[in-house]
Amino acid sequence: MRRVSRVTAMFALLLVVAGCIRDESYTFKGGELSPAQPAASINLIDHHGDPFSLDDVAGQVTLIYFGYTTCPDLCPTTLSDFSAVKRMLGDDAEKVNFVLVTVDPERDNPARLEEYLAFFDSDFIGLTGDEVSIEAAKGGYGVVATRVDYPDSATGYLVDHTSLIYVIDRDGNLRLTYPYGFDPESIAEDIRHLL
């Protein structure tokens, strides 16, 4: 009897260990930066016109996308994906920040960012700033953004830009990236493992 329970206990322990190992070895769906490195600092102005620093969201998971509000296809696609991820996370979304850093500070002032993001989710954070601050933020993440003038187009100009999503974990490390169009369900699953 005793022996049976010992075996049972050992088996149970094995299961627990196996469970831990499996969790430890979770393979992220996104591109994982290994070893994780401290995320480059971001010091900009948010969509309310208040200063914003990554220190303000320390201890939480933050998704960052560099884009602009005049962008008709890619940026709204990514913001819609953000909305989907947030919805999938349910209550856990309270510990997750979704950030759009503009690559078009000339047009994207705080009021415009606020108006734009509210259409997707009023919890989303929009960041802008002067050229120097924006350049610094872009540089920290290796973001390329090039203004291309189209005098014959009603847009005047468009901005070609890096379309990655960057994920900063609770320890402030740049941990994951996703290319444009990545499946929101996979992103949500990754984020759950970072919480």
């Binding site: 296809d73 390329v144 291309v148 468009l158 070609d160 830009h161 890096t162 379309s163 990655l164 290319p179």
Partner: peptide, 8 residues
């Protein structure tokens, strides 16, 4: 190459 471009 990872940079999205848009053209009329």
């Amino acid at each position: 190459s990872g940079v999205m471009t848009m053209r009329p």
